[in-house]
């Protein structure tokens, strides 16, 4: 398919730990089409953030190893790019909203200073014209972005430091930074998780509206299928570093196939819950010594001998619905 913006193919990411390699991502396939809103859903620790950090090349330096895989951005492999090319994608192509807004903003610089830098280094700041005029333009842009995320009194906000703002405001600022310059792909890493429920809802709605208005593509990371249902066109369900099911959002809810997805769905009514509490027992496997076959079999009530022996591949079930399970 030619219209993938982002196409992750068979990606393996391991972390170096004292006890050996923690084999987190285990052959991830993931793609985003132009204008599409895609969900990446799975419980805590399944590798969602790891996947998207590898896309932007911001995995912790020296602590990871990528034995295999490709991350194609408009067909070009990000993992093999020269620094300048990667730089261009980061400053003009994609932006990311981090899971924890308090951690994503630098505590010792004003909001203004940080937004200005995003604009300045995106290539949109340095058009022709005098320096002061340029500065004025950057400031205008920043103020406009803060208005767009519905924070009153943008002029004052520019002078504030992160610790003077509430969690919800900080997350809005992070959103403003991600959309202040034109980008085609927005990666949102559980942008509501650290906020309380009503604010979480507002942030999600805001994000969806902005993405629609600007015609951006969206990767929405969440541990809640309920959130994904409201926000996305297509969903990837991830379990322990594997994509276990892919389907259009409507199709997934109408016809869920993978036992893990079914377990997740059982926990949907509890939209606010932190993770999977009903439907599935046990926890994510140890990445140092992951199960040899299907990584889900220790928690799966359908598992049998074959599941322990071999890893189930993603199978096409028709209509763009894929699942990785021998028992479906």
């Amino acid at each position: 398919m030619g219209n993938h913006i982002l196409d992750i193919r068979d990606l393996y990411v391991w972390y170096r730990t004292y006890e050996g390699y923690s084999k987190v991502l285990d052959g991830v396939d993931f793609n985003v089409n132009k204008g599409e809103k895609v969900g990446l859903v799975g419980e805590a620790g399944c590798g969602k953030t790891t996947t998207m950090r590898s896309v932007l090349g911001i995995l912790p330096e020296g602590q990871f190893h990528i034995p295999k895989g490709e991350i194609l951005y408009h067909g070009e492999n990000i993992l093999k790019m020269k620094p300048q090319e990667l730089h261009k994608i980061r400053s003009e192509g994609m932006s990311m909203i981090f899971q924890e807004p308090s951690a994503a903003l630098n505590p010792v610089f004003t909001i203004g200073s940080q937004i200005f830098d995003v604009i300045k280094y995106s290539g949109e700041g340095n058009s022709a014209g005098s320096r002061s005029k340029n500065k004025e333009k950057i400031r205008e842009k920043a103020i406009q972005a803060i208005r767009e995320v519905y924070i009153p009194d943008p002029e004052r906000i520019l002078e504030c430091y992160p610790n003077q703002l509430s969690g919800g405001m900080k997350q809005r600022i992070c959103i403003a930074m991600a959309i202040v310059t034109e980008r085609e792909l927005l990666i949102a890493d559980e942008p509501g998780t650290s906020l309380d429920v009503t604010i979480q809802d507002q942030v999600h709605r805001l994000l969806r509206d902005l993405v629609d208005k600007k015609g951006m593509s969206l990767v929405m990371i969440t541990h809640s299928l309920g959130v994904a249902r409201e926000m996305t066109d297509r969903i990837y369900v991830m379990y322990a570093g594997n994509i276990v099911e892919i389907a259009d959002t409507k199709e997934l809810f109408a016809n869920p196939l993978h036992p893990y997805t079914l377990g997740l769905l059982a926990s949907v009514p509890k939209l606010t819950g932190g993770g999977v509490t009903e439907g599935i027992y046990g926890q994510i496997p140890d990445y140092l010594n992951p199960p040899k076959g299907c990584r889900f079999y220790p928690r799966c009530d359908r598992a049998d001998h074959s599941c322990q022996q071999e890893k189930p591949p993603l199978r096409d079930m028709g209509d763009g619905h894929y699942t990785a399970c021998f028992k479906v």
Partner: peptide, 14 residues
């Protein structure tokens, strides 16, 4: 290792 640094890198700052 802080997110704010990863964020600055991810925004393509030099």
């Amino acid at each position: 290792t802080k997110d704010y640094l990863a964020s600055a890198v991810a925004f393509g700052m030099p």
